[in-house]
Simulated scan of single mutants.
Amino acid sequence: MHEGREMGRRPVLHRLALLPLALLAGCLSPTLPLPPPDRPDDMSPLVDAPDTWVISGTCLEGALVIVFNERTGEGAVVEDRDRDGRYAVEISAQRCDLAWIEQALGEDESGRTSFVIQEMTASGPVDPNACK
């Protein structure tokens, strides 16, 4: 009888011995990068400061969003603290400057999405020919 109990324990012990290897393999598997954010869906210069633009759009809930102007070498970082998947930043820019946006969540970062600074609404560019 003692031998029967030993036979039943071996498969369980083998599985338990493999558990750390399975967990280690899960830790070593690559994680998918965050998706890059969409281009901003609203851009407009401030009325009283036309070289300051308000740029807004969608992001992952709770993400840090970085908007950077290539011409000026400056940008802004904002956190989606209310977790509604939206951001809005003000940056120094001129119409037709090239800029990019990226987002980070925890230790994960997305790729960049490039865009041209121009007046934009949810319907698209106010003047599609302004920066051609």
Rank of each mutant, 00 (worst) to 15 (best):
T121P: 06
C131V: 05
P128L: 02
L21F: 11
D84W: 01
L98A: 14
G57Y: 05
P37H: 09
E119R: 15
A99K: 11
D82M: 08
K132T: 07
T72K: 10
T52D: 04
C131D: 08
V116I: 15
N129K: 14
E70R: 14
R10L: 14
V67D: 07
Y87V: 04
E90Q: 15
G26F: 03
M1D: 09
D41K: 10
R86S: 03
R5E: 11
M1G: 14
A104I: 00
N129T: 15
I117D: 07
V67N: 10
V78L: 00
R81I: 02
G26H: 09
R71I: 00
D82V: 12
E3N: 11
A88N: 05
R9D: 05
Q118T: 12
I91P: 06
Q94V: 04
S114Y: 15
E61K: 15
Q118V: 01
L13W: 08
D42W: 10
L23D: 02
P125W: 03
D80P: 05
L32F: 00
C131Q: 07
M120E: 06
D108Q: 15
P45T: 07
R83A: 06
D97G: 07
S92W: 09
L21P: 00
P11S: 08
W53Y: 11
Q118F: 02
E70L: 10
A99F: 06
V54C: 03
T113C: 01
L98K: 15
T72Q: 08
T52Q: 10
F68D: 13
R71L: 02
C131N: 10
S123G: 11
L16D: 04
R9L: 13
S29W: 13
T58F: 04
L28A: 13
V47G: 01
P128Y: 06
D127Y: 06
A88F: 01
N69K: 07
V54R: 14
P11W: 02
R9A: 13
D48V: 12
E119L: 07
M1S: 14
E70P: 00
L98E: 14
D42P: 00
E3F: 12
G124A: 07
E102T: 12
P50Q: 04
M120T: 15
R83K: 13
C59I: 02
E119H: 04
L46I: 05
N129Y: 09
P125N: 11
A17H: 13
E119I: 00
M7P: 00
A130M: 01
P40D: 08
G62S: 08
G85M: 05
D38N: 12
L98M: 11
E74V: 03
R10H: 03
P35K: 13
A104T: 10
G106V: 03
A63D: 06
P45S: 11
P11T: 03
D127M: 03
A25S: 09
V116M: 06
Q103E: 13
T31D: 06
V12E: 12
R83Y: 00
P20A: 11
G4S: 13
V116N: 06
V116A: 02
P128C: 03
I101Y: 02
H2I: 08
P125K: 06
N69Y: 08
L19V: 04
V65S: 08
E107P: 00
L24R: 12
R39G: 01
D42Y: 10
Q94G: 09
D97Y: 09
E6M: 11
S114P: 01
F115A: 10
R10C: 01
I101A: 13
D127C: 07
P35F: 01
D38H: 12
W100K: 07
V65L: 09
Y87R: 12
V77C: 09
D42R: 15
R5I: 11
